[in-house]
Amino acid sequence: MPLYNDTALVLRHYDLAESDRIVSFFGRRYGRIRVVAKGAKKLKSRFAGRLEPFHSLDIVFFGKENANLVKLSSVEMSTSRTGISADLEKFYHASYMVEMVEAGLREGDPNLTAFDLVAKGLSWLERQTGSKDLEWVTRFFDLKFLSALGYRPMLERCLLCKKEWSGDTDPFFDPLAGGLLCRRCSDKKTGFIPLSKGAAKFLGKILITDFEMAERLKPSQSLLEEISRSILAFRNARLQKVFKTERFLA
């Protein structure tokens, strides 16, 4: 049977039989995969503590091509994120990121941009302090992740009349269509969210900002609340899912 290797994030694990586990990974090369880790619950398992959620691992697995479940052969720690388990709020937010991955990507569907984003997002989350920072990380992640899935909102011009948005007037955000509407076109549609021009520009900045630079971009509380409304409505319209982890977020 062929061996495969990948760098992968541990999303979660399930118990299988007495001492085995099924581990759900998000691999850089193979996307979301489920791998059987034989004996993972045993005290002297060679996988042991490495298979906990949010760590980045270098994994080797084997199995028949197109098999539903493959078997884990070896794991090496690439980046441990133990700081997440030491903080309840960070654990909740990281769990939410995992749920976003599961909602947005099918198994066996690789997405390099999304992978890098989740890895950076979890590392950034681990470094943050304060619940406002965590909320900001998560909303920043939401918009970037949706964009990585191909749902990039149109923020440069009006979705209806296609006129370039000048940035001088307060526009509206249409979560269903995914973009801005100018004041004149907003009369023709319903279900949109009023946005201040500052918030609309800020959404645009998120799209072109990398995680490393995001700390400099940190918004005020009122601005964060304003962009959060649009981002969450956009996420709900695109992913059509009730997030179990959402009620745990502060």
């Binding site: 996988f47 042991a48 906990e52 760590h55 720690m77 441990s80």
Partner: peptide
């Protein structure tokens, strides 16, 4: 570290703990 095990086979996180 579990009693009776060998440090060589202990993972980084368990060793750190």
């Amino acid at each position: 570290v579990p009693v009776g095990s060998d440090l060589e086979f202990v993972d980084e996180i368990t060793l750190m703990k």
